[in-house]
Structures are given as C-alpha cells and as structure tokens.
C-alpha cells in the first residue's frame, strides 16, 4: 500500500478538526437549503405571474445571481457590507446570506419551470370543478410540481454542499481549509499527506451527499 500520509490524521486533534470543518460546511449548506426552499417556491410562483415588470425584475435577479461567481458574491457580502453599510458580518452569516440568495434564485427557476410544465388542462379542469385560484394551486398544481421538483432540487442541495468549499476565502475554516492546514503543517515530515487527506475529504463529502440522494430516490419511488 502506498504511503498516503494518513498518519497525519491521527496526530493530535487532526481528525476531530476535519470533522469540525465538515460540520461548519454542513451547517452553512443546511441552513441555506432550509431557507432557500420556501423562498424559492415563492419566487417561482411569482415568476409565473402575468405582470411584466415583476417578471422582468425576477428574471434580472436570477440572471445576476447566475452570472456572478459565488466567490464574488461572498466577497461582496462579506467585505462590501462593511465598506458601504458598516455592518460587520461573521463569515458564516455572510456565507448563509450568499447561499440563500443563490439557492433562492436557482430554486425559483426550478419551481418556475416545474410549474409551467404542468399541462394547461390541469388548471382548466380544476377551475371547471369550481376550485378557486388559490385552491387550484394548493391542491392540484403544487403537489404535482413538488414531485417533479424533487430530483432537480436534490441536485441543488449537493451542489451547495460542495460549493461551501469557497467560504474559506472569507475566513471560515471548513473541511477543505482544515485539510489544507494539516497538509501544510506536515509538509516536511509527511509530504504525501495531500493524497490521504484529500481522499478522506472526498469520502466525507460523499457521506454527506449520498444519504440525501438515497432519501430522494426513495421518495421518488414512493411518489412515482
């Protein structure tokens, strides 16, 4: 077996530090997801509205967030808010704000596309049955939409978990940064540690994302 420098993980608190970093990443992504889903559903419904101005503004928001690299958004919120507004946000808070802005935009677009994919006759039949507009949404359209949404939003969740690796740029020590610190601290006595530690980080990310995918698959089967 080649030397992967895994002994580095057994030194001192190293493995615990890696888990702590993972916890930081998972916390940021889970809080962001929990907020992005309701906001995204609202945004998606708004985007299907008839008002041109509203449609234009939501589209503008979506494209702005999409075009901006997440890293730039992180810098803007973390440093920009201090510069122009005098707020002193914690790195974690800034990260959650950016991820919610991003998640809401992406989720909104997913909801919009899922909503428009519901055939027109569903709306019309429901109206014909005498359901009010709000009732149509709640009982007919949304349940169908949510099922279509599930695979797409799971994709967003896992993307979000992986993108947390960027928050190291605003001083948050998440799993990747913790790993880099260990690799560098042992540059001399364990030059191969990069392989072992990145392997472990890979497994950790997998362990976070895999159960999410599995749960989604089960739900899909159940609803399908």
């Amino acid at each position: 077996m080649p030397d992967l420098g895994l002994d580095v993980l057994l030194k001192g608190n190293n493995f615990f530090r890696l888990l702590e970093g993972l916890l930081a990443a998972v916390k940021i992504s889970m809080v962001s997801i929990a907020l992005s889903i309701p906001f995204g559903v609202l945004l998606g419904i708004t985007m299907t509205g008839k008002n041109i101005l509203v449609r234009f503004l939501t589209k503008l928001y979506l494209e702005f967030i999409r075009i901006m690299p997440q890293l730039v958004l992180l810098f803007l919120v973390f440093f920009g808010s201090t510069r122009s507004l005098g707020w002193n946000l914690e790195g974690e808070t800034a990260a959650v704000i950016v991820f919610v802005l991003w998640g809401t935009a992406e989720m909104g677009d997913l909801v919009r596309s899922a909503l428009t994919s519901i055939p027109k006759h569903q709306y019309e039949s429901s109206r014909a049955l005498g359901l009010a507009k709000r009732q149509t949404y709640f009982y007919i359209i949304l349940p169908q939409t949510l099922r279509r949404l599930l695979p797409l939003s799971i994709n967003l969740v896992t993307r979000m978990v992986k993108t947390t690796s960027l928050v190291l740029m605003i001083g948050v020590v998440e799993v990747l940064k913790a790993g880099q610190q260990m690799i560098e601290a042992n540059r001399m006595n364990s030059p191969n540690a990069a392989f072992g530690i990145y392997l472990v980080i890979f497994i950790l990310y997998f362990l976070v994302c895999w159960p999410v995918s599995m749960a989604a698959r089960r739900l899909e089967k159940k609803w399908g």
């Binding site: 001192g12 610190q181 560098e184 601290a185 540059r187």
Partner: peptide, 17 residues
Amino acid sequence: FSDKNPFGYVDENGNYR
C-alpha cells in the same frame, strides 16, 4: 496564514504557529 508552513500554519492541536 493558516497554511503557510513555516510562516503561519496550524499545528495538530489547532494552535497557530
């Protein structure tokens, strides 16, 4: 820096060195 040995890095107990 927290990852530039030997100028600024974090040791195995989480202390800056």
